[in-house]
Every structure is written in C-alpha cells, then in structure tokens.
C-alpha cells in the first residue's frame, strides 16, 4: 500500500514538473505528451495492479510487475542509445568549431618578431 502511494505521488510530481516545463516552452509538445502518458500509465497500474497482470498475461508474461520491468529495461536501453548518438554528434560539432577557429588563425613563421 505504502509503495503504491509513493509511486502515485511521484508520478503526479513528475507530471506537474513536465507541464510547468511545457508551459515555459522548455520541452516540446511531443515530449510533454509522451512523458505525461508514461506517468499516467504508472498511476493507472499503481491503483489497479490487476490490470497490469491482465495485460501481462495477454502479451504472454506471467506477472504485471515483470512486464513493467522488461519494458523499463527496453526503454532505458533505447534512451541510452539516443544519448549515445546525440553525444557523438555534439563531439563532432565541437571538433568542427575548434577546426574553424584553428584554420582562421594560422600563425606563420614570418610573423615572429
């Protein structure tokens, strides 16, 4: 029971934070809907754990909690992958900028005084 309450409170907290971020235009509508949907799902499952079991059995997993865990792992793996690609792009952009600065300011031997 305690765990359910904590989970619901945390989900509500996450949703209010996201909606505030969205109103300040710090996150996109897509991200807002995705995030809100995800936490709404968490609330639903926390309040009615048996629905999760039903869904789990429908897709061929024994327990709802197991299904949630599997999905969480897949989601995290995907997010890590995205970060990975994004970080690589950032690294390349930094190199581009550093290169531009370097070629624009060559110091030539005859400039020595």
């Amino acid at each position: 029971m305690t765990f359910q309450v904590i989970l619901v409170l945390f989900a509500l907290f996450a949703i209010t934070r996201t909606s505030r971020q969205y109103r300040k235009r710090k996150v996109s509508l897509y991200w807002f809907l995705l995030w809100t949907g995800l936490w709404a799902l968490v609330i639903g499952i926390a309040l009615y754990p048996t629905t999760a079991d039903a869904i789990a059995r429908f897709v061929g997993v024994e327990r709802g909690a197991d299904l949630a865990l599997y999905l969480a792992v897949v989601l995290l793996a995907y997010l890590v992958f995205r970060l990975f690609v994004r970080q690589e792009e950032t690294e390349r952009s930094i190199t581009q900028v550093v290169r531009q600065i370097a070629v624009q300011h060559p110091s030539k031997p005859d400039e020595t005084h």
Binding site: I94, V98, A102, V103, H105, P106, S107, K108, P109, T112
Partner: peptide, 12 residues
C-alpha cells in the same frame, strides 16, 4: 613556429 612551421592551434 620558431622552427619554421605554420602553426594552427586547437583551442580544445
């Protein structure tokens, strides 16, 4: 540069 090279510097 003193040795006669053109030197480009990476700032990072």
């Amino acid at each position: 540069r003193a040795a006669g090279a053109i030197v480009l510097r990476h700032v990072i």
